Amino acid sequence: MTNITKINLGQNGPLVSKLGLGCMRMSPVFGSPVRDETESIATIQSALDSGINFLNTGDFYGAGHNELLVGKAIKGRRDDAFISVKFGAIFYNSQMLGLDLRPVAIKNFINYSLVRLGIDTIDLYQPCRLDNSVPMEDVIGTVADLIKEGKVRYLGVSEITADQLRKANDIHPVTALEIGYSLADRQIENDLLPVAKELGIGVVAFANTAEGLLSGDMKAPLEPDAYQNHFTRFQGENLVKNLEKVEVLKQIARDKGITPTQLAIAWVNAQGNHIMPLVSMSRRSRLPENMRAMEIVFTPEEINALNTNFAPGAILGGTYLQR
Results as ranks from 00 to 15, higher is better:
I258A: 10
L222N: 12
R284F: 01
D59W: 05
G202D: 06
A253G: 09
E302C: 10
V268L: 05
D225G: 03
T57W: 06
N111Q: 15
F109I: 05
L192T: 15
L183Q: 00
P277Y: 11
R283D: 07
L165M: 06
P14R: 06
D185K: 13
C23L: 12
S50D: 08
M96H: 10
F234I: 11
G257L: 02
V246W: 01
E37A: 09
E198C: 02
I74S: 02
D36P: 05
D145P: 05
N93H: 08
S113V: 12
I296T: 04
G202Q: 13
G88H: 13
Q11Y: 08
R292Q: 15
I160K: 08
D79Q: 06
I160C: 05
A47H: 02
P28S: 15
L9C: 06
I171A: 06
E189P: 06
V203C: 03
I140G: 00
F310S: 01
I83A: 02
Y92F: 08
S282F: 13
I106K: 04
R116L: 09
R35L: 10
P103I: 08
A81F: 05
T43Y: 02
L239Y: 02
K75T: 11
A196V: 03
L55C: 07
N169E: 04
M1F: 00
E247C: 10
V174Y: 01
I252T: 07
S32C: 04
L165G: 06
V134Q: 02
L48F: 07
I315E: 01
P33T: 14
K151A: 10
L99V: 03
F91G: 13
F310E: 01
P28K: 02
R166E: 12
R166V: 08
P288A: 11
F30S: 15
A168N: 03
D163W: 01
G20S: 13
V16I: 14
R153W: 03
L316C: 04
N132R: 14
G64C: 03
I179H: 01
V203W: 02
I296M: 04
P28T: 09
M26L: 01
G22R: 05
W267P: 03
E189Y: 07
I83Q: 01
Y227P: 12
V134I: 15
N56E: 15
I140H: 01
